[in-house]
């Protein structure tokens, strides 16, 4: 391994790698935020919905969780364009990861909600809270403690799954790295570097999650 050559090439490639990292963060953040919002509604529907709604949502969750993310990405990019919805590679990729994230968050939220004793909801009803108020003021704060650790786990999964967008041509960190490798042929060095950056990114997410966990934990 030629270290000084690697450092020189790393410096030469800093702008393209940084823009790749920026794309990775943007894709992951957008997918996690959108997927979580959608996932909360799915979790609610799964827990409190009518029977027919629960059936539909169950199908949605099982279908998405049972499909490889890679297949989801290809489907969002190619199948949607056949039926007339022409998304860019970036949009299709974010859509696929959002759907994937929502199915996982939906399950997490459902699990957290049914773990809360029914007495809580009954107490909220008896003091006259609406369902919306019950959810926001009574259930969600308690569910959040259950949700957070697995939710952070899902976020790191999404960061890793974002590498698959390179296949449909989104220049995120992995494809940016591959482009540098194809020019410099320093594959070992740059793949190690990319792996280290992904680790750092996920380490930061996990630490942030831990910090929030400590903040909201009941002493």
């Amino acid at each position: 391994m030629n270290f000084s050559l690697f450092l020189t090439e790393l410096w030469n490639a800093r702008l393209s790698l940084l823009s790749g990292l920026g794309n990775t963060i943007l894709i992951s953040a957008a997918s996690v935020v959108l997927g979580s919002v959608l996932g909360v509604f799915i979790g609610l529907a799964m827990t409190y919905g009518a029977k027919w709604l629960r059936f539909i949502v169950r199908l949605y969750i099982d279908f998405l969780r049972g499909t490889p993310v890679f297949v989801l990405i290809l489907a969002c990019f190619y199948i949607l364009s056949v039926v007339g919805l022409d998304l860019t590679a970036f949009q299709a990729g974010v859509l696929a990861l959002t759907l994937f994230c929502s199915s996982h968050v939906g399950e997490i939220v459902r699990g957290a909600l049914i773990a809360i004793p029914a007495g809580q909801t009954e107490a909220a009803k008896s003091v006259g809270l609406t369902f919306g108020q019950t959810f926001v003021y009574v259930l969600l704060p308690q569910a959040l403690r259950q949700i957070l650790p697995t939710w952070v786990n899902t976020a790191t999964e999404i960061v890793k799954a974002s590498t698959l967008l390179s296949i449909i041509g989104v220049v995120e960190l992995l494809l940016a790295t591959q482009q540098v490798i194809s020019r410099t042929y320093l594959s070992l060095e740059f793949y190690l570097f990319a792996g280290f950056v992904y680790f750092l990114l996920n380490f930061v997410i996990e630490q942030a999650g831990r910090a929030v966990e400590r903040r909201i934990s009941i002493p």
């Binding site: 220049v171 194809s182 020019r183």
Partner: peptide, 12 residues
């Protein structure tokens, strides 16, 4: 593509 010189690649 963007990863196969000298056909198609991203230069420095």
């Amino acid at each position: 593509g963007s990863t196969n010189p000298p056909w198609h690649f991203v230069d420095s």
